[in-house]
Amino acid sequence: MANIVMRLGERYTTRTQDRLVERLRAANAIKPANATLLAPLSRREARLLERMVKFRAVVQEGEHLYWLNEQALVHFRKEELARLLGAFAVAGFAAAGALALGR
Rank of each mutant, 00 (worst) to 15 (best):
L68I: 00
L37V: 10
H75R: 04
R44T: 12
R43W: 05
N3C: 05
L99E: 13
E79C: 02
L48K: 12
A39Y: 06
V74M: 05
M6P: 04
H75A: 04
A39T: 12
R43D: 14
A72Y: 03
P32M: 12
E22I: 00
E79F: 07
L84V: 01
R44N: 14
R23G: 01
M52W: 06
E10H: 06
V53M: 13
R83L: 03
L85R: 09
L68V: 00
L84T: 03
E80I: 01
L8Q: 11
R47L: 15
E61A: 12
A94I: 15
Q71G: 01
A35H: 02
L24C: 04
L24W: 00
R43E: 15
R83V: 03
A72E: 12
I30A: 01
A2F: 07
M1N: 09
R47F: 15
Y66T: 03
N28A: 06
A95T: 13
N69M: 03
R23L: 02
Y12N: 11
E61Q: 10
I4C: 08
L48T: 09
F55K: 13
R19C: 06
G92C: 13
N69P: 05
E50Y: 15
R44W: 09
D18F: 07
R47Q: 15
K54I: 12
I4S: 09
E22M: 07
R83D: 08
A91R: 11
F93C: 13
A100H: 06
L84A: 01
L38M: 11
R56W: 12
E45W: 13
A27F: 03
R19A: 10
V90Y: 09
V74S: 02
R83G: 01
R56G: 14
T14W: 02
A82P: 00
V21H: 00
R23A: 03
N3Y: 10
V53P: 11
E70D: 06
Q71P: 04
L20F: 01
I4E: 05
L85T: 04
S42H: 09
A87R: 14
D18Q: 12
A94W: 05
A95E: 15
G97N: 07
E79L: 02
I4F: 12
K31R: 12
A87N: 13
L20Y: 00
K54E: 15
A91S: 10
G86L: 10
H64V: 09
F88Y: 12
D18I: 06
L84I: 08
E10G: 04
E61S: 10
A46V: 04
N28H: 13
R103K: 09
A98N: 09
R7V: 04
L85D: 08
L49K: 08
R43N: 14
E22V: 02
A98S: 11
K78I: 05
A82S: 07
I30M: 02
H64M: 09
A46T: 10
L84G: 04
L81M: 08
A26R: 05
T13Q: 09
E63V: 11
M6S: 07
P32L: 11
A89W: 14
R83P: 02
R11V: 07
S42A: 09
G62S: 14
A39I: 15
R19K: 10
E80L: 00
Y66E: 05
K54A: 14
N69R: 08
T16C: 08
